[in-house]
């Protein structure tokens, strides 16, 4: 398999955890909150999903359990920030640390165990396309579901009343409240959604992408997802595009080889962060984002 073929085959799967977590966080931030706990929510989701699949053999159960546990952790954030109006930066860190710690605690006895991942699906006709057929277009079921889910999210946010309400809550909570929108409920649901998406992202990472559990296996992907939301300027399509881009970068040295550049892999690993800082500068100059302090 050539470097290019490897990238074509691997990018979607590598991007998926980033995409799911970032889309969840995007919705949270659209309602005017900032949850910094992505890394922890992904980690606990990954651990629980692995344990569940290890014992039951069912990926469906694994994904469901991961979404559930990460939603519970996200609700702790909601209690602090929405419930008692605690500082959201501190609250995000609290659940982030908690999630990371719990993942290591629960996952401890499962280290170096393995499970089987999910099969890649051969779709007739599509998989016969030269070059991209057997690589880009041969993916597991979760990838295809995520593609559909991303489109659905775009539709909800841009073409439905719910999308408008979410935007209204984020842009001006007081105004939204005064015309009768349930601000607290919308935010609660957004935080729960963000948690569930992080759980799914973690589950994909630990039970499909690399079907094993190792402490610290999320390895900064939560932070990249957080960066991704800024990179995608809170728009579904751009976040998805950014996820692909950051996914390629995360393949690191393989990408470097494929592109034939002799850069140290650390430069490639830093690129998402550097680009995000650049994006922050560019965006903040043009308009102030609803979620972040000016």
């Amino acid at each position: 398999m050539s470097g290019l073929e490897f990238l074509l085959a691997g990018t979607l799967a590598a991007s998926l955890p980033l995409l799911l977590a970032a889309l969840g966080e995007m919705v949270v931030e659209k309602t005017g909150l900032l949850n910094l706990g992505l890394e922890g929510m992904m980690a606990i989701g990954a651990a629980i999903a692995f344990i569940c699949v290890f014992h039951t053999g069912s990926h469906v159960l694994g994904f469901a359990a991961a979404a559930l546990i990460s939603t519970v952790i996200a609700m702790l954030f909601a209690i602090l920030v929405i419930g008692v109006k605690a500082n959201e930066v501190a609250a995000g860190l609290a659940i982030g640390v908690l999630g990371l710690g719990l993942s290591a605690l629960f996952g401890k006895s499962y280290e170096s165990r393995t499970i089987s991942g999910l099969p890649k699906i051969d779709i007739p006709i599509l998989s016969d396309v030269p070059l991209i057929g057997p690589t880009l277009l041969t993916q597991d079921i979760v990838v295809w579901l995520a593609v559909l889910g991303t489109m659905a999210l775009w539709w909800v946010l841009n073409r439905t009343k719910l999308g408008l309400i979410i935007a209204a809550v984020g842009e001006n909570a007081d105004a939204a409240r005064s015309i009768g929108y349930p601000v607290v409920l919308i935010r609660m649901c957004a935080v729960a959604f963000g948690g569930a998406m992080c759980g799914l992202a973690g589950a994909y990472a630990s039970t499909v992408y690399t079907p094993l559990w190792a402490d610290g296996m999320i390895a900064g992907r939560g932070w990249i997802a957080l960066a991704l939301v800024v990179f995608g300027t809170w728009q579904t399509g751009r976040v998805a595009f950014g996820a692909l881009l950051f996914g390629i970068l995360s393949l690191g040295e393989l990408t470097a080889q494929a592109m034939g550049v002799g850069l140290p892999s650390q430069v490639l690993s830093s690129l998402p962060y550097l680009v995000t800082i650049l994006m922050l500068v560019v965006i903040s100059r043009r308009r102030s984002c609803p979620t972040l302090p000016p």
């Binding site: 900032l34 910094l36 930066v89 900064g220 932070w223 957080l226 960066a227 800024v230 140290p264 650390q266 430069v267 690993s269 830093s270 962060y273 550097l274 995000t276 800082i277 922050l280 500068v281 903040s284 100059r285 102030s288 984002c289 972040l292 302090p293 000016p294």
Partner: peptide
């Protein structure tokens, strides 16, 4: 970046921290 462009220091400091880890790795390896 915050005072000149209004970029959120929450995210910038966080990104810089992640970059610092990469600089450290580069030097040590």
């Amino acid at each position: 970046l915050r005072t000149r462009f209004g970029a959120s220091e929450i995210l910038v400091t966080l990104m810089l921290a992640l970059i610092a880890v990469q600089i450290l790795n580069y030097l040590l390896l």
